[in-house]
Amino acid sequence: MKILVGYKRVVDYNVRIQVKPDGSGVVTDGVKLSANPFDDIALEEALRLREKGVAEEVIVVGIGPADLTAHLRNGLAMGANRAIHVVTAEAVQPLTAARVFLKLIEKEQPGLVILGKQAIDDDANQTGQMLAALWDRPQATFAGKVEIADGKATVTREVDAGLEVIEAELPAVITTDLRLNEPRFIKLPDIMKAKSKPIDSIELASLNVEAHDHLKTTHYAAPAKRSKGVMVKDAAELVAALKQKGLL
């Protein structure tokens, strides 16, 4: 079985994002970029399934500009067998990303597609679900535990009410939540090895996907700031302040 893994590059989660003063975007020049944390978890899960003998091949997929190859090399260094780079200078929205993945699925015929539940830049939380719809296959979102056996995935999902377990026939789409696993660190020899692993580059335009964007972002703003409050000296003063506000 092949596993396709979405591997997006985003602004590093430790960066405090600044909105440009003219509201035209956020400052990304010189900002550290990293793999979307949920995608690292997706890749780790795929690698573990390969190590267990459930899968033979793990393919990382990135959609982005020419310099995305350096990022895909990290995925290869982590352990993916090969990478597919769908080249486009424009940022793509989730529906387009899902359509791109569907094209790659038609070609690669994976048994499983694992994506992060959301990317920490646009926080959309859509691509996996959209892909499953277009592919007409099961989705198991927000996965906290995955077991593959007898042609199906048994997935424990982190939902608002608690933990839900569902069963999905393969092929299927899984999206990862935080506690699915702890991704491994890349070791130096693996970085050397990754240099000889293949990256297929495909122009987005050549895939014939409907790639126009339905949503237009017209303005970026900084969030409303909470004003700094006061420090109280002890528990009694805290209770008094809360009682005065009518909260206790």
Binding site: Q93, Q126, T141, F142, D213
Partner: peptide, 23 residues
């Protein structure tokens, strides 16, 4: 925008062939 809505809405949007606005 609960885990219920986040799970189902994008699947509906894709079936309708439209984008989704989250949150």
């Amino acid at each position: 925008s609960t885990t219920f809505g986040k799970d189902v809405a994008p699947r509906v949007a894709a079936l309708l062939g439209v984008a989704q606005v989250s949150d």
